[in-house]
Simulated assay, not measured.
Amino acid sequence: MDHSEPLLETPLFSAHRALGARMVPFAGYQMPVQYPNGILAEHGWTRTHAGLFDVSHMGQALLKGPDHATTARALEALAPADFLNLAPGRQRYSQLLAEDGGIIDDFMVTRPLAPEADGTLILVVNAACKTGDFAHIAAHLPEGVTLIERPERALLALQGPEAAAVMARHCPPAAALDFMAAIPTEFDGIPVEVSRSGYTGEDGFEISVENESAPLLWAALLAEPEVKAIGLGARDSLRLEAGLCLYGHDIDLSTSPIEAALNWSIQKRRRSEGGFPGAGRIQDELAQGPARVRVGLRLEGRAPAREGAEIASDGAMVGRVTSGGFAPTLGAPIAMGYVPPALSAPGTRLDVLVRGKALTATVASLPFVPTRYARKPKAGA
């Protein structure tokens, strides 16, 4: 990002200022890192009630073709998920891959529920990557499939155990969704696109709406007693506790989805058929195992390990921390990083070097804090 360029503002910039937010540069935008109550309070509120996030800096776009199969296969040539068999009204997580299997970005894909939208996929990509992502996708599309950016839309995320009760008052159809389902609907009469998903590990919703209507939704949600505005600081500590990757830190062009422990995001058909960038490498890593793998780490003491800290075993460096911080829910420091598979089993003891001092760390299962997504009960359960 050229820092000489003026920072952009989301449609909710004035609303953040009115709440006393501390604004910081993030992905080319002025974004709220925290509000007056502070990051710890915001983190705890989201875990116990409902937090409202402005994520309008994210990149939204439509991929349009003559029919679903054509559009899905066009995207499957760039990413390893099975979009062909994605059902209407469902959402899927995947990654845009480079030719060597490195990750260009991770993103969300929704197949609209409406029959008239057959041949359309809805994409949401990371803010810092959106310009490059959209150029990359557009440059690799077959004739008849087009990418349509949607800068006219804002994106709000309502996250936490009381989010569904709040949504039921304004948008009853959304409250009936299960995890990773999506519908076009109305919020207090305003047209919106809602998915039951998020980036905190909590139950929640992401709401796409026209820019001019975003302040109305923001105000209506904040008027509910369960809801408070939450900034980027708590968003990061929440996603770290949930063991979720942050692009440019835990995943990037140097990591493959298998190294990043994202095997679950590549469905069976794609694993066997391939047909996406880096398929040979990824199929080999699935069969033989990768050279390194992303793990969670619980540190002893109170000192957090930050990105870049060395991970050591028996005095030898074996990896680096990619995300780290203090976990408010656990009252302890946690981190994620990459280590050889032989050192990746939960319970393995390692050292993390913080300011020249070796701190004892234990490999932990991810997520650090159990997720609470609204999944449908399994048949017979």
Results as ranks from 00 to 15, higher is better:
residue 35 Y to N: 01
residue 187 F to S: 05
residue 275 G to K: 05
residue 20 G to P: 04
residue 278 G to N: 07
residue 272 S to G: 12
residue 282 I to A: 00
residue 254 S to C: 10
residue 68 H to A: 11
residue 182 A to Y: 11
residue 323 S to I: 02
residue 107 F to A: 09
residue 143 E to Q: 11
residue 280 G to E: 15
residue 255 T to A: 09
residue 243 G to R: 04
residue 145 V to D: 00
residue 246 L to E: 12
residue 196 R to Q: 14
residue 29 Y to I: 02
residue 254 S to I: 08
residue 66 P to D: 06
residue 298 R to C: 14
residue 63 L to M: 07
residue 156 L to F: 02
residue 210 E to C: 12
residue 286 L to H: 04
residue 208 S to Y: 12
residue 79 A to Y: 07
residue 320 R to Q: 14
residue 361 A to P: 08
residue 317 M to C: 14
residue 215 P to I: 02
residue 185 T to L: 01
residue 258 I to N: 06
residue 110 T to W: 11
residue 194 V to R: 10
residue 156 L to N: 01
residue 241 E to I: 05
residue 334 I to C: 00
residue 250 D to N: 12
residue 102 G to L: 03
residue 359 L to I: 13
residue 210 E to I: 11
residue 69 A to C: 11
residue 173 P to N: 00
residue 354 V to R: 11
residue 312 A to V: 13
residue 281 R to D: 12
residue 104 I to W: 13
residue 116 E to F: 09
residue 311 I to A: 02
residue 135 A to D: 11
residue 58 M to H: 06
residue 104 I to D: 09
residue 92 R to M: 14
residue 101 G to I: 05
residue 255 T to R: 15
residue 16 H to L: 04
residue 187 F to L: 00
residue 63 L to S: 00
residue 227 V to L: 05
residue 205 F to G: 07
residue 151 P to G: 00
residue 269 R to I: 15
residue 178 D to M: 14
residue 12 L to K: 04
residue 316 A to G: 11
residue 102 G to R: 06
residue 18 A to P: 12
residue 24 V to G: 10
residue 252 D to Q: 08
residue 316 A to K: 14
residue 306 R to F: 14
residue 12 L to A: 04
residue 247 Y to V: 13
residue 242 A to I: 08
residue 300 E to R: 14
residue 57 H to N: 08
residue 231 G to Q: 00
residue 57 H to Y: 08
residue 100 D to Q: 00
residue 322 T to A: 02
residue 101 G to Y: 03
residue 51 G to K: 04
residue 139 A to C: 04
residue 63 L to D: 01
residue 158 L to V: 00
residue 300 E to Q: 12
residue 22 R to H: 13
residue 45 W to K: 02
residue 366 L to T: 05
residue 227 V to G: 06
residue 223 A to K: 06
residue 230 I to V: 15
residue 113 L to P: 08
residue 195 S to M: 15
residue 226 E to S: 08
residue 109 V to Q: 08
residue 263 N to D: 15
residue 116 E to W: 09
residue 271 R to T: 00
residue 116 E to P: 07
residue 218 W to D: 02
residue 322 T to E: 01
residue 152 E to H: 14
residue 42 E to V: 04
residue 174 A to R: 01
residue 195 S to F: 12
residue 31 M to Q: 12
residue 211 N to L: 00
residue 196 R to V: 10
residue 314 D to E: 14
residue 157 A to R: 06
residue 251 I to E: 07
residue 287 A to V: 07
residue 284 D to I: 15
residue 100 D to F: 07
residue 240 L to N: 01
residue 164 A to M: 10
residue 158 L to N: 01
residue 285 E to Q: 12
residue 339 V to H: 04
residue 207 I to L: 06
residue 335 A to R: 10
residue 212 E to N: 15
residue 89 G to K: 03
residue 339 V to P: 09
residue 316 A to F: 13
residue 128 A to Q: 14
